[in-house]
Write a protein that binds this DNA or RNA. Structure first.
Lengths: 347, 347
DNA sequence: ATGAAAGCGCTAACAC
DNA sequence: GTGTTAGCGCTTTCAT
């Protein structure tokens, strides 16, 4: 069923069919009806291939995320899909599983598909990997993580701020030995959230014990191993900050594995407000980021023709639930008591 | 950068470029190199539009799911994406949010995109809604839910069996008043899981009190309201079976809201093994379905040219954790004590 | 082995 | 208003 068939059936030319069906150009009401009837009778559906080839436009977006199974990315994808639908575009979804080779392959695919824009959570943060995609004239928007040395629109959460706020919350409660389970330094999220953690300590005049920091890739297994390693190494921290939902889940399980009670023995804060954080007992205090908005914003940037100079930073906020409390003095035999200083008064 | 440009640069015809790049047809090694060099120099990337139009083949799959934010569908999508990548196809993902209008629009989109197959969790289970898609020659595979009156390949979990097993587990523990929070009868999952629940009771010779059954759409708000309604209505059940992860999450929250303790006051079983079910306290006993496999299998069916006659039913299994225990006699003042019968011995 | 040419389904420019 | 036609980028005969 091609347009030609419809033209034949309606006794008109293909141009008329195109005009009648698309509404572009003038067609007399009489012929319009004839065309509509013929199209209906033949159950004709225009082909996006022919149209796209002619118009040199596909109305397609590419979304490249790490792991669609992670609810954070699910939420992000939901934002992208919703916004895309609203502007009449559809999206090819690619899951890299944090593998740079997968990412390359998907990139190549999306280029060949002539997507109008690629919205990506970059695995490979070397600028070169993305350079030729942008050289090929495909609009590129990064989300969640940045790529250095590439003037590309990017939408991220306020990683430093969110992390700072969470850490400050713990310091304010009186914690002085706060363990940190963070991401790899190869990811901007890993670096920035650690920076917020450090900044809060610095401003509070509290020294960080580097022995209670761990960095792990964003996989459950590695994160869980890191968390156990942390807990088993003369662990005397009174609080733990996990820098994303994977790390948080692994940390939570590890803490339970070791019979440590939250918040009695250990206060826990996690970056990412994920539905399950309300289901644990106690419910977790978390840093919430506007995940769906990030996705929507990315689509807006992908459509906009005037790009923002710097990355768009979306605000985070601390959601205080029940996983934190002041440290129990009795519970921290090895803790060095820092002398109270004015800077310690964070709020 | 079109193929013509490459041909010009390499001093050959477009046909030769096509052959050299695709590997179809013979090209002398010398010219092949010239073409490759020219293509590289121009950073040429073949267009899938031209190719698709000519070949009348898009290598594209459409995936229609309810809510990408639900980890169950995330897992399903991961299976589809992985299997699709393995066979060199890519996928347009559509989230209906359980809205029939959205589904229609997406369907129309996918038809126009000339996807080779649509893998869908159907919202609208009227056969007619899908009839013209299949009439248009697009392969259709349903997952998770069935559509009546349509001879279409379908991949589902063993809903009756899983539900039966979970219920039998509770009966075996001695529960005689088991509440049920199920899905709408408009969905096959809703009907079938209720059927398994009933069958287990029937075979155990235990009568069901219809007053402790609720049916809710698969949205958190409605499910939560239903769960509260159930708990607030002279609730004296000793166990609760939630027929999917949304219902289970809502039930868990409602139970907590009401200060009911699991498993002391109430045993809880949920259909769907979702990561958070291990994070609650106690960890939840669940019916696990091979979600990722279902997605992979659907892709296989979409590619296969000989279709299975009936739906493909994937096995489920009960994962026993800590949310169930025998009922405490003291805790069920209103419970009618059924007389022990041989049929009660389920295992 | 390679060039020329037809044609996939569509839109837009042009002619009437 | 409507028919005709060129051409979007590609693959594949058909000649040579």
């Amino acid at each position: 069923m091609t347009m030609k068939d419809v033209a034949l059936a309606a006794g008109v030319g293909v141009g008329t069919v195109s005009r009648a069906l698309s509404g572009n150009g003038h067609v007399s009401e009489a012929t319009r009806q004839r065309v509509l009837v013929a199209a209906e009778a033949l159950t004709y559906r225009p082909s996006a291939l022919g149209r796209g080839l002619k118009l040199r436009r596909t109305d397609t977006l590419g979304l490249v995320i790490a792991d669609i199974t992670n609810q954070f990315y699910g939420e992000l994808a939901a934002g992208v899909l919703g916004a895309a639908k609203a502007v009449g575009k559809h999206v090819i979804v690619c899951a890299t599983n944090e593998d740079a080779d997968n990412e390359r392959e998907y990139l190549d695919l999306l280029v060949r598909q002539r997507v109008e824009a690629i919205i990506a959570v970059p695995v490979c943060t070397h600028a070169e990997a993305w350079q030729d995609a942008v050289a090929l004239g495909i609009r590129l928007v990064f989300v969640d993580r940045t790529v250095d040395g590439l003037a590309t629109p990017t939408v991220v959460a306020d990683n430093v701020g969110g992390s700072y706020e969470a850490t400050a919350h713990l310091l304010r409660l009186g914690h002085r030995r706060i363990a940190f389970l963070g991401g790899p330094t190869s990811k901007s999220t890993g670096r920035l959230r650690e920076e917020g953690f450090r900044r809060a300590h610095r401003e509070a005049g509290v020294e960080i014990d580097e022995r209670i920091l761990r960095r792990s890739r964003y996989t459950w297994d590695e994160a869980h191993a890191s968390a156990l390693d942390l807990l088993d190494d003369r662990f005397d921290a009174t609080a733990l900050f996990a820098a994303n939902n994977i790390l948080g889940e692994a940390a939570f399980m590890a803490v339970r594995d070791r019979g440590i009670r939250i918040p009695d023995d250990l206060s826990l804060v996690m970056f990412d407000d994920i539905p399950w954080s309300r289901l644990t007992n106690p419910a977790l205090t978390v840093v919430s980021q506007p995940t769906r908005d990030i996705g929507q914003r990315a689509v807006a940037l992908a459509a906009d023709h005037h790009l923002p100079e710097g990355p768009v930073v979306m605000p985070t906020h601390l959601v205080v639930r029940d996983s934190c409390r002041p440290p129990l003095p009795a519970k921290r035999p090895r803790t060095r008591q820092p002398k109270a200083s004015p800077a310690t008064q964070l709020s």
